[in-house]
Nucleic acid binder design. Structure first.
Lengths: 226, 226
DNA sequence: ATCATAATTAACAAATTGACGAACTCAAGT
DNA sequence: ACTTGAGTTCGTCAATTTGTTAATTATGAT
């Protein structure tokens, strides 16, 4: 099962538009600092950074293998919590709700209706329409197999709600590593918001919003959307 | 869905013990010659060969990406038969039967009982015991997701039956690329046997057998094994 | 304001890759 | 016996990677 995961990670990194971002995504999932990871690999932290920043355009597969295996090994030594969370049986409901609208709805209207607070985002895109939304559990969405794969084919003119958000870093990093970007990202009851999250949102020109409503309330409100 | 496949292929290649063999495995699955593949990539055939033969210990991810994307692209241009076969719904029964024995059974006894003909294999391992068997559809086994992943954790002191064998090349190449090797490989009613298959079997010290019985008959016979 | 930690960047030497082309093996046809 | 096709091996060399050190920039915490 570890091998399966390393394969998945490696495949994702290799095929990713930005292998460095994908690498970083996994590093943050495993809760490792560049320094930590570097020491697992017996290299200096700058090496890790170079890869994440894409300064090496095409690292060797040996390097990728070392990286992913080190992370999985490390987790195993810590009790394997992260790896096993990705294989947990009840993880098939990472998607809490998903719907398409029949007509476009302005981003600003959505935010107002769910009582959202804008954390980052340019004024000028608030009137753009979106055509659907998805509510996902943030950890499950990132770690469960294929969930992010399922995002393909969706319109990116949509909103993605993340529940179970701690700092809001992982979801944004995952989005950053993903070629299809939503217009709006809404954190459901986040504990705090890391500055990195808002910075990444700005870089991707995504409207980042938080709301204190819970999933159920949100679905009830969005039911009225058409 | 193509992206999903490229990721899987890339991941397999990166993590493989012998990336070159895994690359070759996929090339044969896509029914491409080195020359064909090379021309898709705008390189000379010797380049393809060098990679398959592992001359470069750690090729760059850019190279891997090019390779796998070229193959999937090629298949798509041909109608996408191979790619879609891997996603077909009824493919979850690639494993026809799987069982463990309670006690060891000599390879020679197994072969005699199923009326098998030895194609390759040293005399001296025929008396070794095996502790179980698996019957898989050869194409599905190789192309379906995770089937080969499921082989992990099995004892390699077992026999693997492949049905739907044409030349017997693909199954052996898949086995060669796989770190866990069975003791015995039995082809069920193969059309012909490519010499490459027997050669690979010898290299892996695997007993290669063919039988003209069909799956049902084999299961009936093996039911009596304990 | 300062201290520590995390991350980024630059400059550089040694090793390796990526690609070519030419020579070579091996089997399959004709 | 000759030819063709597929695959292998290898010398060569420019371009890249791998890794180091050291300096620099956030970010956070006290």
């Amino acid at each position: 099962m570890q091998k399966q995961l390393t394969r998945r990670m490696a495949g994702e990194i290799v095929i990713s538009e930005k292998p460095g971002d994908t690498l970083k995504k996994w590093r943050t999932i495993f809760k490792l600092s560049q320094k930590n990871l570097a020491s697992l690999l017996n290299v200096k932290p700058s090496v890790v950074c170079d890869f994440e920043k894409g300064r090496r355009a095409s690292p060797g597969i040996g390097t990728v293998r070392k990286f992913v295996e080190a992370m999985v090994e490390y987790d195993k030594a810590q009790g394997g919590k992260i790896v096993s969370s990705m294989f947990a049986k009840d993880n098939n409901n990472a998607v809490y709700d998903i719907r398409e609208f029949n007509t476009g709805t302005a981003i600003s209207k959505l935010i107002k209706d769910i009582d959202g607070e804008i954390l980052s985002g340019n004024e000028d895109i608030l009137e753009r329409p979106i055509y659907g939304y998805t509510i996902v559990d943030s950890l499950k969405a990132i770690t469960t197999f294929n969930v992010f794969g399922d995002l393909y084919g969706w319109s990116n003119e949509r909103a993605i709600f993340f529940s179970g958000v701690h700092y809001g870093r992982s979801p944004m990093i995952a989005i950053r590593a993903h070629p299809v970007k939503p217009r709006v990202v809404i954190y459901i009851k986040p504990k705090t918001i890391d500055k990195l999250a808002t910075k990444l949102a700005e870089m991707e020109r995504i409207v980042l919003v938080k709301t204190e409503l819970d999933e159920e309330e949100i679905v009830t409100i969005l039911k009225k959307f058409n």
